[in-house]
Nucleic acid binder design. Sequence first.
DNA 1: ACTCGTTTGAAACATACGTTTATTTCATGC
DNA 2: GCATGAAATAAACGTATGTTTCAAACGAGT
Lengths: 235, 235
Amino acid sequence: MDPITSSVSAGEGAHSEPKYSETAIRILDAAEGLFVELGMEATSLRLITQQAAVNLAAVNYHFRSKDALFEAVFLRRFGPWATECLRELDALEGRVAAGAEPLTAEAVVWSYVRPALALSKDPSRGGVMFVRLFSRVLVENHRQLRETMSRQYGDLVTRYTRALGRALPGLTEQEVEWRMHLGFSVMFHAFAGNDILKVFGRSAVSARDPDMIVRHMVPFVVAGLTSPPSGRSGK
Amino acid sequence: MDPITSSVSAGEGAHSEPKYSETAIRILDAAEGLFVELGMEATSLRLITQQAAVNLAAVNYHFRSKDALFEAVFLRRFGPWATECLRELDALEGRVAAGAEPLTAEAVVWSYVRPALALSKDPSRGGVMFVRLFSRVLVENHRQLRETMSRQYGDLVTRYTRALGRALPGLTEQEVEWRMHLGFSVMFHAFAGNDILKVFGRSAVSARDPDMIVRHMVPFVVAGLTSPPSGRSGK
DNA sequence: ACTCGTTTGAAACATACGTTTATTTCATGC
DNA sequence: GCATGAAATAAACGTATGTTTCAAACGAGT
């Protein structure tokens, strides 16, 4: 029988995670690394199955198609990360509501950075691979994945935007959205190591240590987020 | 005869631009749009030649291979842009040397943003396409292109790094490189419109007007660049 | 021991790809 | 008006792709 309908649809309802068989996991692991390194299009199923030491047909058996495999690879990491982000946000807003601390942009940033950092350091959850995969999704156009994301995780963005807006009073809603966009862009691509300097071969920086990335990135982003409002806000 | 050896190698020496035949230009234009939209791997020569209304073999005739075509597509835009950036930097440093203005981080940023903005608004030079293509190059691994870039344009990065370092005294060399990396990441991906919010379907922001992008982006980046040095500088 | 649903396995499928080959068309110089 | 080299064309090449097929192996339940 189709293992897809049993596992995936069982895990469809509200953010729960599907269980995978051992060979399915081997496929996911191999595919993850290759998708990150070569991109979705340039990675062949034969390369994946060879590296995973499983049969070629196993991919279509366990995941129905290459596209569905890509989505599974991505969502396996994204789901837990999104959950952790929401938990961090909940905790932060709880402390703020209790008057234990003010709601600052830096605190909001950390509620995103902390899960990303934890994830980066945990190889069993994909380590830094996931962030690099995510940065690919941002650039490539995976239509179906985007639909899934906006359907299933749209509220995450809403939550962050609202929190940031509260942390940055005096900014128009549009300015908040822009800074959110800019700030998250930096964070994603910094974590992913999409370094311009790397392209030019002058990459003394790319030590790729997550702690160091965070140490330089967070002050940069917080400074950008909290900079004084521009004279006239955009149309 | 091979049109490649005549045109490209004629334009090899020191940043000059090769001349292309009309059909070659048609191919470059079609390929540019498709590479941006679909990525290098997902774009087939058949799609390109069909859209350019030229024969399939014309690509290999004029550009030798698909890889070489990609490089040509990229360098056609990158060359003039790099030249303009260097001219802006020269002009800035000239004014600074003459004591006409101080060397600020914002001025350095503008020496990059101005050419990018001009390019974004000029459809005859690819418009916003090029920046989006560039952001793909940052994420995908085009080995040969990277070699060409670092060989031919490595000095551009050196110039920017040095200028930024002078504009930001009190920062260690490493901090300057980090901020440079972060700042340019924002600028590239902001111009390219690689919007995280877009992935989640909540893209009120992405009006994609270059002027508005710049208006929000520059203050953000300048704030990040000029933020006070972090306590202990990273190892 | 046998059955039945699940999972693997090897092979084939049709298609699409980048590239190459010959041939034809075309413009230009003599 | 013909020869010459560049450019366009149609067709084929070999290979690699995602997917499907169908038979074999497996593993628990009775």
